[in-house]
C-alpha cells in the first residue's frame, strides 16, 4: 500500500511540475468568471423585462445546463489528457524499467497512478461543478438540489474515462489509446441521443440501440443522470432547457452498471500491466 501512495504522490507532483495542474485550475477560474458574469447579466435582463417563471427557467436553465455540459466535457478531456501518456509513455521512454525492477508489485504502480489522477480529477470536478452551482445560487437565488449526487456522477464519468485510458495504455500506443477513448465517448454520446429521441418518438429499436451503446460505454448515462438530478427545475416540455435535456432518465441499474464497469476496467488494467512484457 505504501508503494501505491508513493506513486500517487509522484503522479500529483508530476502534473504540478509540468504545470498541468496550474494551467487547468487557472483556466477553470476563467471559465467560472465568464459563466458568473453572463449569468448575472442574463438574470438582470430577464428581471428587468419582467419575465415569468417559464422564461426565467428557459434562459437561466439553458445557460446552467450548457455550463454543466461543458464542465462534463472538460472533465472527460482532462481525465484523458492527464492519463493518456501515463503508462504507454513510460513504456516507450523505458522510464518504467527502472521502476518495476524495484521491489514493487506492478499493479501497485498502476493503482498509484490511478489514485493520483483520480485525486486531481476530483479537485477539478468539484471546483468546476461546485463553482457553477454556487454561482447560480448566488446570482439567481434559485436552489439546486441533489448537488452531491450530481457531482458524484460527473466525477464518476471522469473516473470511467481515466480507467479506460489506463487500461488502453497498458497495451496501446499513446496515440491509439487517446483515439480509442475519444471515439468511445463519441459513440456513447451519439447512442445516448438516439435513445433520447427514440424514446420521444416511442421507437423501441432506437431505444435499444441506446441501451446497447450504454452497455458498451456507459459515460452518457452518467451525464444524463447527473443533469436530471442537477437541473434546477424539471422541465416538462422537450427542449425547454435548450438541447441539454433529459427525456429518459437512466435507471439505477444502469448507474450501478457504470460503477461496476469502471471498477472492472481498473482491475483489468492492473492485470494487463502485470502480465505484459516490458
Amino acid at each position: 500500500m505504501q508503494t501505491v501512495l508513493i506513486f500517487a504522490e509522484l503522479t500529483i507532483r508530476e502534473t504540478q511540475r509540468r504545470k498541468v495542474l496550474w494551467v487547468s485550475l487557472l483556466l477553470a477560474v476563467g471559465f467560472l468568471t465568464i459563466f458568473g458574469v453572463g449569468l448575472s447579466l442574463i438574470f438582470r435582463e430577464l428581471a428587468r423585462l419582467g419575465a415569468g417563471v417559464d422564461d426565467m427557467d428557459f434562459g437561466l436553465g439553458a445557460l446552467f445546463s450548457a455550463a454543466l455540459y461543458m464542465v462534463n466535457f472538460l472533465v472527460i478531456v482532462m481525465a484523458l489528457l492527464i492519463s493518456v501518456t501515463a503508462v504507454s509513455g513510460e513504456i516507450d521512454s523505458h522510464t518504467i524499467e527502472a521502476l518495476v525492477t524495484k521491489p514493487v508489485r506492478r499493479w501497485e504502480v498502476i493503482l498509484g497512478k490511478w489514485l493520483g489522477f483520480a485525486a486531481i480529477l476530483t479537485v477539478y470536478t468539484v471546483l468546476l461543478v461546485g463553482g457553477v452551482i454556487v454561482l447560480y445560487r448566488w446570482q439567481t437565488g434559485f436552489l439546486v438540489s441533489n448537488v452531491l449526487a450530481g457531482l458524484g456522477l460527473m466525477l464518476m464519468q471522469g473516473l470511467l474515462v481515466l480507467s479506460l485510458t489506463m487500461l488502453g495504455g497498458t497495451r496501446l500506443s499513446t496515440l491509439a489509446n487517446g483515439v480509442l477513448a475519444f471515439m468511445m465517448v463519441g459513440i456513447a454520446f451519439i447512442g445516448g441521443w438516439v435513445e433520447q429521441i427514440g424514446s420521444l418518438l416511442q421507437s423501441e429499436t432506437a431505444v435499444n440501440i441506446g441501451i446497447v451503446t450504454s452497455l458498451i460505454m456507459p459515460t452518457e448515462i452518467l451525464w444524463r443522470q447527473a443533469l436530471a438530478l442537477l437541473q434546477p427545475r424539471v422541465t416538462t416540455a422537450a427542449f425547454a432547457s435548450g438541447p441539454f435535456m433529459v427525456l429518459s432518465q437512466p435507471s439505477d441499474l444502469m448507474i450501478g452498471y457504470a460503477v461496476v464497469y469502471t471498477a472492472v476496467l481498473l482491475l483489468l488494467s492492473l492485470v494487463a500491466f502485470s502480465r505484459r512484457d516490458l
Binding site: H94, T95, E97, A98, V104
Partner: peptide, 21 residues
C-alpha cells in the same frame, strides 16, 4: 521475486527517468 529485487541494482541501457525531478 521481490525480496531478491530489494538487493538488486539496475542501470538500464535506455536510462530515461522522470526529467522533471
Amino acid at each position: 521475486d521481490r525480496t531478491a529485487r530489494a538487493k538488486i541494482g539496475f542501470l538500464p541501457e535506455h536510462f530515461r527517468f522522470h526529467e522533471w525531478l
